[in-house]
Write a protein that binds this DNA or RNA. Structure first.
Length: 566
RNA sequence: UGGCGAGUGGCCUAAUGGUAAGGCACCUGACUCUGGAUCAGGGGAUUGAAGGUUCGAGUCCUUCCUCGCCAGCCA
């Protein structure tokens, strides 16, 4: 018995309240939910919301959640997707234990139930073509017309259904339809198709079948077979609920599941429709389903988004029936929040500018002790080599600094993190006036980063010894779409693609400690953001993906054009 | 002119007839060897509209408006 109404985070929602009430009032001994993907594509962040809801409820109320593939349409489904989906759900942090199911496991039972409906006059074989059925269906405002085959004898329908199964008829020649109400305002009740002929091999049942149940006929009955108590789906299925209930009530099913609908996730600056995602991949706008810019779970994982961050995000957006659009910032905040706690800090210089410390002994190397994670003392420290010639970030120097620019400038003193204070003495330029080098001096008294005389600096920069830094490629990512609502106001979503969603930087430098970081392990490049090694990395050619930038108030000031304001 | 659903600060979500709460975002200040993090504070809502019931309405009733979904042998 469990009468809690809230999730561990203290939040609840209308579905959890229904579950809690059903348990409290004894309608069910335990809650059983299910996540029912069709294996025809990759899972994305929107599915994550559903996964977190279904598995989350099972976990919180001490019930169970099944992973069930809704594999009723062999022409679109593939084993590859089944494998990828299982991996993604596991990665997200959920476990279905023994409860892995396939709608195709129930084909025989479903067929028996189809016969049951026919025998009871609740279903019939229709010889109309797809076009004719459409014509008979009517429109949103006009009722449909009954098929001429609607009242044929049950025995005849039964015989035809058997012969459909036996493969006697070609695709599309006949269907099995429920006999409900051709004049219903709900089009799903206008004698919906239950079975269609598809001479197509199925990833799991092979060529055992040439007729396949539709979603409507398979889903609720699969729920009933598995003892699902709460069948949770998205809003677009609300219209199907009367049909869901009609089938359950007219069939000798072993349990009585109920369907509940919630609003699917929408996110700004991205798109979550399978069709658009597919086009992004097929038209080469991204490099694949796992491109770090994709909102797919495999893409987010490659990008370096931790599963915990995605779960936190799902929890933060809540579950309701109001279809809204969540700002990506909420997702990014959730991800930064876990990365800030967990990611090891490292130095990297993406856009290098050489600094020579003129008064530092040539050939000398000092090991500076750097903290691995200020949020987690147990992460310890590491040595970072310091020498006379260093790389710093080009953005950390300005020859003519505006008022609010605190970093290095001619004559200015700043701190090199964990090392010394340095002062810029001279700016060296090439023939074109490009700054190629900074000549600086350091104060030996400031070793470790503090001045004995108590003087302060306004900025602390990250740096790397030119002699020790490793070379790396770094891929910078930004929103795939520059518009918050891609394709709004009549535009094609693809017009809103962000041309700068990926910027590849070569000849970046990373600190030696980064040499052997496992793929996908997130680190923070101090002052820059969170990054993780990409699978494209080679032993001597590391590639890093930028997961997210750090919050950057300087960048914000620049964007607002306020950097000169007093 | 059909059916179903939804409208609460910029965004998301709560308040289950008792006097609008939280997260994100934004702004200020403190602190800081990351312009990060953290901490403290702040602005911002005539709850889609108009009526009605009630001592009292975001919540109940009526009418209206707006938005979303549905006419696959997809899910």
């Amino acid at each position: 018995m469990n009468d809690q109404t809230t999730s561990p985070s203290g939040r609840s929602d209308f579905i959890r309240e229904i579950v809690a009430a059903d348990l409290r009032e004894g309608r069910h001994e335990a809650v059983v939910t299910r996540f029912p993907p069709e294996p025809n594509g990759y899972l994305h962040i929107g599915h994550a919301k559903s996964i977190c809801l279904n598995f989350g409820i099972a976990r919180e109320f001490d019930g169970r959640c099944h992973l069930r593939f809704d594999d009723t349409n062999p022409v679109k489904e593939e084993q590859e997707y089944i494998d990828a989906i299982e991996a993604d759900v596991r990665w997200l942090g959920f476990d279905w234990g023994e409860h892995l199911y396939f709608a195709s496991d129930y084909f025989e039972q479903l067929y028996d139930w189809a016969c049951h409906l026919v025998k009871n006059g609740k279903a019939y074989v229709d010889d109309l073509s797809a076009d004719e059925i459409r014509e008979h269906r009517g429109t949103l405002t006009e009722p449909g017309r009954e098929s001429p085959w609607r009242d044929r004898p049950a025995e005849e329908s039964l015989d035809l259904l058997e012969r459909m199964r036996a493969g006697e008829f070609p695709d599309g020649s006949r269907v099995l339809r429920a006999r409900i109400d051709m004049s219903s305002g709900n089009i799903n009740l206008r004698d919906p198709v239950l079975y269609r002929i598809l001479h197509s091999a199925h990833p799991r049942t092979g060529d055992a079948w040439c007729i396949y149940p539709t979603y409507d006929f398979a889903h609720g009955q699969s729920d009933a077979i598995e003892g699902i108590t709460h069948s949770i789906c998205t809003l677009e299925f609300q219209d199907h609920r009367p049909l869901y209930d009609w089938l359950i009530e007219n069939l000798p099913v072993p349990s009585r599941p109920r369907q509940y609908e919630f609003a699917r996730l929408n996110l700004t600056h991205t798109v979550l429709s399978k069709r658009t995602l597919m086009r992004l991949v097929n038209d080469g706008h991204v490099r694949g389903w796992d491109d770090p810019r994709m909102p797919t779970l495999t893409g987010l994982r490659r990008r370096g988004f931790p599963a915990e961050g995605i779960r936190d995000f799902a929890n933060a957006v809540g579950v309701a029936k109001n279809e809204g659009v969540v700002e990506v910032g909420v997702l990014e905040h959730a991800v930064r929040d876990v990365l800030n706690r967990q990611a090891l800090r490292r130095f990297a210089v993406l856009n290098p500018l050489k600094v020579v410390i003129e008064n530092y002994p040539e050939g000398q190397v000092e090991e500076m002790e750097a903290v691995n994670n200020p949020e987690d003392p147990s992460a310890g420290t590491r040595p970072v080599p310091f020498t006379r010639e260093l790389w710093i970030e080009r953005d950390d120097f300005m020859e003519e600094p505006p008022r609010k620019f605190f970093r290095l400038a001619p004559g200015r003193e700043v701190r090199l993190r964990y090392a010394y204070f340095i002062t810029c003495r001279e700016v060296v330029k090439d023939g074109e006036g490009e700054i190629v080098e900074l000549k600086c001096t350091y104060d030996p008294e400031t070793r470790g980063g503090d001045a004995p005389d108590g003087r302060r600096v306004k900025a602390t920069l990250h740096w790397l010894s030119t002699a020790h830094a490793l070379n790396a490629e770094v891929r910078l990512y930004d929103h795939l779409f520059r518009e918050p609502y891609p394709g709004s106001d009549g535009r094609d979503a693809f017009e809103d693609l962000n041309p700068e969603s990926e910027t590849v930087l070569h000849d970046c430098f990373i600190e030696p400690a980064l040499a052997e970081l496992p793929t996908g392990e997130a680190v923070q490049f101090e002052r820059l953001g969170y990054f993780c090694p990409d699978p494209d990395s080679a032993p001597d050619a590391p590639v890093f993906n930028r997961t997210l930038t750090l919050r950057d108030t300087w960048a914000k000031l620049q964007a607002q054009g306020k950097q000169d304001k007093a």
